[in-house]
Design a protein around this nucleic acid. Structure first.
Length: 434
RNA sequence: GGAGGUGUGGCCGAGCGGUCAAUGGCAGCAGACUGUAAAUCUGCCGGGCAACGCCCUACGGAGGUUCGAAUCCUCCCGCCUCCA
């Protein structure tokens, strides 16, 4: 198998090959096989100003959907975000004020534009459910949405069942109704026929199918299929190595926003992918063909030390997220910073100072002990940590391994720069301030 | 509103008057081995310091008992269960 049907008919086949298909609702395959235009949506949480790489799963779901001729709709949950979905065990969400929300939505849209095409007849569309949920009255909600669900149906959902022991508020219990209302609204007003989401969303998504089934005037589409709407779920991304996906080694999220995670750090994160995970990531987070990916799989098996797959993955994902030029640049920077020999070129150091993260040591401090100077510059969170790092032999500056925390920093390169290597993975550039 | 339970370091989870900066596990960091991987082994893992010791801050919050409390008492707050 080297290629998939480029139209809607090939979507499921491709997702299946990529391992991104967990479940599809009754009739979806047949609906896609008709080749008629179709719109599908996926929800995103706008509670922060940036998406992180965990969101790449739904993003690539929409991306593949668009590649196969579908029209992606990205819904931001300005309304539901305030409620809290019991499926994601987050405890309590805070209300966002309107300006923050609008700012976040704009930021998220800008990020999605790197992945989805917002132009043309099949162009992606962004919607905010606050626009319709916000103005919906309680009576209206109960009559138009609540009326169509029975309590036993709601109680039967996994997301509710698992919380029954520990307890959940009525608000959280109602979440699936709001999500159903979203789906029904998009179905009615924009003709959106499909909702996509993670496997943990399945219950909420099918609740939406239920609502649409009961409220849409069936038969208006002539010989339309029996089902008026469809659902598609991705598997939960549990890495084969068992680590939490989306977190860096330090446990922080890896953000798509270059101001929150530098492109260099972003590239490094992918470059460090475990051998056991890299094949999955190539399938999920690139649009490479089966031939290319299987070729890289073979490379991993034959010459794991070369990490060809990791390099290809890192370059591809970074390029898509931050631009090809930036990706090439950080790739080159990585080679330089991880070469056995330290960087001696002041011009290069000056550029890296800005791009990989730099710190300043003022002249007064530079004479003090290295540990104190680096802690003072914020490279380490405390004096003790810096001291420990040096005592463990984990700190190399300008190619010279530090041994004594009290000894001063080595002579700066060109009277100004320190190339700092912390452990095997961290790289920082220091500059002598005045 | 009533009854009971519970709140410990990033997470889980011991401790239940001193020997507790707090057992253990996970996560994390560094080193060795490697491939900027995994596994394994070693060390570290609240902060400070003239540092095999001393000081400060910590066991939901505020008081109190005591020579001494994370451990006992009082009040408050959060969470959970059941009853109304």
């Amino acid at each position: 198998m080297t290629s998939f049907d480029p139209g809607p008919a090939g979507l499921l086949e491709e997702l299946r090959w990529r391992g991104m298909l967990h479940a599809a609702s009754e009739g979806l395959e047949a609906r896609l096989a008709t080749g008629r235009p179709i719109s599908g949506y996926n929800g995103f949480d706008p509670s922060g100003p940036s998406l992180h790489i965990g969101s790449l799963v739904p993003i690539f779901g929409l991306l593949h959907f668009q590649r196969h001729g579908g029209r992606p709709v990205a819904l931001v949950g300005g309304g539901t975000g305030m409620i809290g979905d019991p499926s994601g065990r987050s405890s309590e969400r805070n209300l966002l004020d309107v300006e923050t929300l609008e700012f976040n939505v704009a930021s998220i849209r800008a990020q999605l534009e790197h992945f989805l095409d917002f132009d043309g007849p099949r162009g992606a569309v962004m919607v905010n459910n606050l626009d319709w949920l916000g103005s919906m009255g309680l009576i209206e909600f109960l009559r138009d949405v609540g009326k169509h669900f029975t309590v036993p149906y709601m109680l039967a959902k996994d997301s509710v069942q698992t919380r029954l022991e520990r307890g959940l508020s009525f608000t959280e219990f109602s979440y699936m109704l709001l999500q159903s209302a979203d789906f029904a609204h998009l179905h009615r007003t924009m003709g959106v026929e499909m909702q996509m989401g993670g496997a943990d969303q399945w219950g909420n998504i099918t609740a939406g199918l239920e609502l649409i089934r009961r409220t849409s005037s069936t038969g208006s589409g002539g010989e339309a299929s029996a089902e008026p709407a469809f659902a598609l779920a991705y598997p939960l991304l549990l890495t084969p190595s068992g680590a939490k996906f989306g977190k860096s080694e330090g446990g922080d999220s890896v953000w798509l926003d270059p101001a929150m995670t530098t492109p260099f750090a972003f590239y490094q994160h992918w470059l460090n992918t475990d051998d056991r995970d890299v094949g999955v990531y190539l399938r999920w987070f690139t649009t490479m063909s089966p031939d290319e990916i299987e070729g890289l799989d073979a490379e991993v098996a034959a010459r794991p030390g070369a990490r060809a797959a990791q390099r290809a993955l890192a370059l591809d994902v970074t390029g898509r997220t931050h631009g090809t030029d930036v990706a090439r640049q950080v790739e080159a920077d990585s080679v330089a910073l991880f070469a056995p020999e330290p960087i001696r070129d002041p011009a290069l150091l000056e550029r890296l100072f800005a791009s990989v993260g730099g710190f300043e040591v003022d002249a007064a401090q530079s004479g003090a002990g290295a540990a104190a100077a680096l802690a003072g510059a914020g490279v380490f969170s405390s004096n003790g940590e810096a001291r420990r790092m040096i005592q463990n032999g984990g700190l190399t500056i300008n190619g010279e391994q530090l041994r004594d925390p009290a000894a001063p920093l080595p002579e700066p390169i060109a009277g100004e720069w320190w190339e700092v290597r912390i452990g095997k993975r961290r790289r920082e550039i220091g500059r002598l301030g005045r």
